[in-house]
């Protein structure tokens, strides 16, 4: 009798979960994104996820004739969440690297921007070599290519890793950090909202081993059909000028990369 009860409990719990077959036609594609990364993706006062990648992703869906669902996901958990089917694609400014490609499948690159160092407005030096930054506090979002970059090269600095994409900048503005490494457009957006807090020191070269060629959508290894659908749609939106149109709403410069 007790075990029957236990089974009933398990059954009830299972009812909450929706079981689906693994091979399927893609009618709905669930997008996972870490919406702490304005202007690419952030949450507005209504609670919607908005930004360049949301508009672009929706345009891709329209082209692929699928329904898009957007889900917020903390960046640290974005790959495990993809692999455990909490959503079907990471569409969240994820840089394509060889290390990541071992676990997940990337689409073609759809944008490439420069990594930068930013610092407090009061710090005048433009020297960001590891020797110059020894003993200084450098912040980055954890599990990012930026975090890997400083972790490998800036052994003598105090490295602080944050769960969200804009939290390092918030702590740079408050003076907890001396430097932040991150994306140039995210930094510009933050400085635009908090004028005088900080300045961009220097752009870094996109070294292929650390930063990779640019940003792509990421899928579970078995979903090659979904990847092909995305690549086709990416090429089509380039060709018909949709990409340019969306880009112009957000940025003054061309971020498409090649």
């Amino acid at each position: 009798m007790k075990s029957a009860k236990f089974l009933a409990f398990v059954g009830l719990a299972a009812c909450l979960a929706s079981a689906t077959a693994s091979a399927k036609e893609w009618k709905t594609v669930r997008f996972g994104t870490d919406a702490t990364y304005a202007p690419f993706e952030s949450v507005n006062p209504k609670g919607d996820i908005v930004g360049f990648e949301v508009d672009y992703g929706n345009a891709l869906c329209a082209r692929m004739k699928v329904t898009c669902v957007w889900q917020n996901q903390d960046w640290d958990g974005v790959v495990p969440a993809l692999l455990s089917s909490k959503f079907d694609v990471i569409f969240s400014s994820m840089n394509i690297t060889a290390e990541r490609a071992k676990r997940i499948l990337f689409s073609d690159m759809y944008y490439a921007t420069a990594p930068i160092f930013a610092t407090q407005a009061a710090i005048k030096s433009d020297d960001v070599t590891p020797a110059a930054l020894a003993g200084k506090a450098i912040g980055a979002q954890s599990s990012t290519v930026f975090a890997n970059y400083i972790d490998q090269r800036y052994k003598a600095s105090e490295i602080k890793l944050y769960p969200g994409g804009d939290e390092p900048f918030i702590d740079l503005a408050s003076g907890r950090l001396d430097y932040v490494i991150g994306d140039i457009l995210v930094a510009q957006k933050f400085i635009e909202k908090n004028p005088g807090c900080c300045r961009i020191v220097t752009e870094l070269k996109r070294t292929p081993d650390t930063f990779g060629p640019g940003v792509g959508a990421a899928f579970r290894p078995e979903d090659t059909d979904l990847k092909d659908m995305f690549n086709k749609a990416i090429a089509e939106l380039d060709a018909d000028g949709t990409y340019k149109k969306i880009e112009a709403q957000y940025f003054k410069t061309d971020i498409r990369g090649k």
């Binding site: 640290d76 790959v79 495990p80 692999l83 676990r103 912040g139 954890s142 599990s143 975090a147 602080k160 890793l161 944050y162 769960p163």
Partner: peptide
């Protein structure tokens, strides 16, 4: 760990972010 301190949980998160090993 959530405010950047590398305590036991913070280090755990760090390693997980690096390895994705559960």
């Amino acid at each position: 760990a959530i405010v950047t301190l590398l305590d036991l949980m913070g280090q755990t998160r760090f390693v997980f972010a690096r390895t994705f090993d559960f």
